[in-house]
Design a protein around this nucleic acid. Structure first.
Lengths: 340, 340
DNA sequence: TTGAAAGCGCTAACAC
DNA sequence: GTGTTAGCGCTTTCAA
């Protein structure tokens, strides 16, 4: 019972040779209808399962893709994994995951085991700490398809799937303008991170599009945390002309804003409007519920897999697949900014 | 550059034979210190990576474990995956994930590909819809180690790692009693699910331990949702002798309770205490923050992997590993129930 | 239409 | 200490 059924076993059973059985099982041409049926029946009866290891060694493929994420505990990545796995599943691929814990050494190790496992392709989101990208370049050099998602690096010339941060910020700001807020502030994050810079640009651009001035006083540099949101409000309300709305660079900062405004008894959305970014799961449950920008995580996973698939299938020749997918973020308006 | 370096390449380079190179690389005895060094140097220089597929075919092992979860999008499972992967990583294992989407057919398919991939072991959380367990029994019959986590089935005699729901409910109820609440209600879930039944028992048991009566009126049968929480409160407050606290079977129901109490202007925790179950991420961000019972998800993943490892290592002989790990849940008390 | 043989890359048993 | 040989399970020539 415990013994694994192999092609040889089936061959013996039917007085055939392994080659024929293999052909029959894979519906290759060059086998009589008759034998094919017989073989498949017997295989079924003996509960045969093709050994993917042997198949891989022979074929040079594994039907496995490797995915490197900072941590599966972060909602965002769990969601992306969901998208990746469901697509992979549909295409007969399996997903191997590896967590970098934001550390380049782990990334490196993950890549090594992936290459060693001969995965057919790799999807990765770069660790925050990573500055040297040679391990990623090795993947490329080895000819293994690689696609970045969310955390990409433009200078490496590696295909990627990201969300349009500029646009998301533009949407958020525009929404506040249309809701009638007059002085809209922004709490930004560390400026060496591209996503935060892009969001700042989107904010500025929306203001400009509606003929509003960009006031340096209304841009607060935070460090992405609840506390930063609170501090920003303290700062803003101390201004001679305080703002009446704020677009925060991400939801935890926005949460701090909401908490601080509540503590100060300032009404949202009437007296003050707030929009965050990321559409975290707590957004809809806090009071007032928080408007935010959804980053299309599941879709991101799906697109990343699709892109990788194209690369795998096109092989060496290279019909030059689309190398950059930019997803449109989706605004989710809730109580914190909906005046009407 | 693109050509993969094999043991044969190194052997040729050094005028040795593959066997010797293999021995040297794996630090097997029976190689001179000298050759070993040379081989390892050349391997390094040529950027050799052992081919795990070939190694697996030869050794019959893969150093890969398969994990079946309902969905990676559910926080709970992302968190468990985090625990599993980090442990696996430490032990040189990789993690293949497969989502059942709560459907038995997918489970079945996942198991087939896992067996076909010759994973060294399988961790699984049973899909809600699954009634027939023959696919799980096949794993066992094939001699592949299997451990259930969270969603287990006791009648199958398969090792599992679960959290102690009874105890968690006991803690929650006891806490409310100690906070001085006099009439403590419970909102329960569908009684055909063991976890909900256990929580109900834990609730009753704590009341009994403190000499309090179990009043049927104070047990509301809900369906696990925000709405159920709201309805429960409407019901409770209509009673001749309403309760002054409620232990809800899980956090979304508790959230409904909190929302409804707020809408009715009832003060928490003074006039009414609330405790949920699961320690969802929104708990600490709502107002008042919600007391809950943490299910030790990361730890669950780690324990599940450890148990699986023991089974893998003990092999056929079977020293009979511990077959059931029951984790102690951890209460997290917040504003919704902390009177002092 | 089927069989024989080779080989994917590795390691273990046995010889020298 | 090193080489020879064989085989893990499969697929794919090439020959019959």
């Amino acid at each position: 019972m415990n013994h694994k059924v192999t092609i040889a076993d089936i061959a013996r059973e039917l007085n055939l040779t392994g080659a024929t059985v293999s052909r029959a099982l894979n519906n290759r041409k060059g086998t009589s209808e008759e034998t094919r049926k017989m073989v498949q029946e017997v295989a079924e009866r003996m509960n045969y399962r093709r050994d993917r290891i042997a198949w891989s060694l022979r074929s040079g493929r594994t039907n496995i893709i490797g995915v490197i994420i900072p941590s599966a505990e972060i909602n965002f990545f769990g969601s992306v994994i969901h998208g990746i796995e469901s697509m992979a599943n549909q295409h007969g691929y399996n997903v191997l995951i590896y967590q970098s814990n934001e550390q380049p050494e782990y990334e490196q190790k993950g890549i090594e085991t992936f290459l060693s496992t001969r995965v057919d392709g790799i999807l990765a989101s770069i660790a925050k700490e990573t500055l040297d990208f040679s391990h990623y370049l090795e993947i490329k050099e080895r000819g293994v398809p690689l696609v970045f998602f969310d955390r990409a690096n433009d200078s490496l010339n590696i295909p990627s799937v990201v969300v349009d941060d500029f646009k998301g910020a533009y949407y958020a700001t525009e929404h506040l303008i249309r809701q009638g807020y007059k002085r809209i502030a922004h709490i930004t994050g560390q400026q060496h991170l591209k996503i935060f810079k892009d969001r700042l640009e989107g904010y500025k651009s929306a203001l400009a599009a509606y003929g509003l001035p960009v006031e340096p006083d209304l841009i607060y540099q935070g460090n992405v945390s609840i506390e930063a949101g609170r501090q920003a409000i303290a700062h803003f309300l101390g201004l001679p002309q305080p703002p009446d709305a704020v677009f925060a660079v991400e939801d935890f900062t926005a949460l701090g804003v909401v908490k601080e405004l509540k503590d100060r008894g300032i009404d949202m959305p009437e007296a003050f409007g707030v929009v965050g970014f990321a559409n975290e799961s707590f957004d809809e449950h806090i009071t007032p519920s928080l408007s935010s920008i959804d980053q299309q995580t599941v879709q991101m996973g799906k697109e990343a897999f699709k892109l990788l698939m194209e690369m795998i299938n096109e092989g060496e020749e290279g019909t030059l697949v689309k190398s950059r997918v930019v997803l449109d973020p989706v605004p989710v308006y809730r109580q914190s900014s909906m005046r009407r």
